[in-house]
Computed example of a mutant assay.
Amino acid sequence: MIFARIILGHLYTHPELVDEVDAIIPMPAYLEPHQARKGNDHTGYVIERAILEDDEDLPFVLDPPLIEKTRATPRMRDTTSLIERQIAAHELYAALHVPDPARVRGRRVMVYDDVFTAGSSLNAVAMRLKASGAVNVYGLTLARAQWR
């Protein structure tokens, strides 16, 4: 919940960021069917709870999602080389699906996540959204990690 409050607080105090977007979405996460029923999406679930208390009417889009991750892929944090990261990003891109491209077409989308390392995941998501018609894709993260 702290993550959600920090993201919301940042957006409230930097309204110029929100002026540039039509939709704010979480980094898509793949959840096994048994996890999805329990609300275990680490970013979507907590931000959804915080949004219920949001009086700023930020343009969050959670359900139905604009983009989905259809299967598990290698975790970026487990990669140790540029080639491993590129392979993982390619697999992530292939696992991403935009269920209704009409909902993405012409929009400016902000994707939020907890940690930014090298940008490979955000790049894959941005490329999939742009391939589906998004005009711009912006990233917002809580922290920047050092890449090994």
Rank of each mutant, 00 (worst) to 15 (best):
L52V: 08
R75H: 12
M27Q: 08
R85L: 06
H42W: 08
E56P: 02
M127D: 13
L66R: 06
S121Y: 03
R37P: 04
W147E: 06
T141R: 02
P64A: 05
L52F: 15
G133V: 09
A143S: 12
S120C: 04
R105I: 00
V137W: 09
V115Q: 00
R75D: 07
E53K: 12
T141H: 08
R128T: 10
P33H: 11
W147L: 04
L96T: 01
I47S: 03
D54R: 11
I83E: 15
A88W: 11
L66A: 04
G44W: 06
D100V: 09
R49H: 00
S120I: 02
F3P: 00
P28R: 05
R144Q: 13
F3G: 00
V21T: 07
F3L: 01
V98T: 08
R107C: 08
S132T: 00
V98F: 03
D113A: 03
P99S: 03
L17W: 15
R37L: 10
D41F: 00
P99H: 04
Y112R: 00
R77Y: 06
E91M: 12
D41Q: 03
Y138N: 07
F116E: 05
V46Q: 09
W147F: 09
L11P: 14
D113M: 02
A131D: 14
Q35F: 00
K130H: 11
I7D: 02
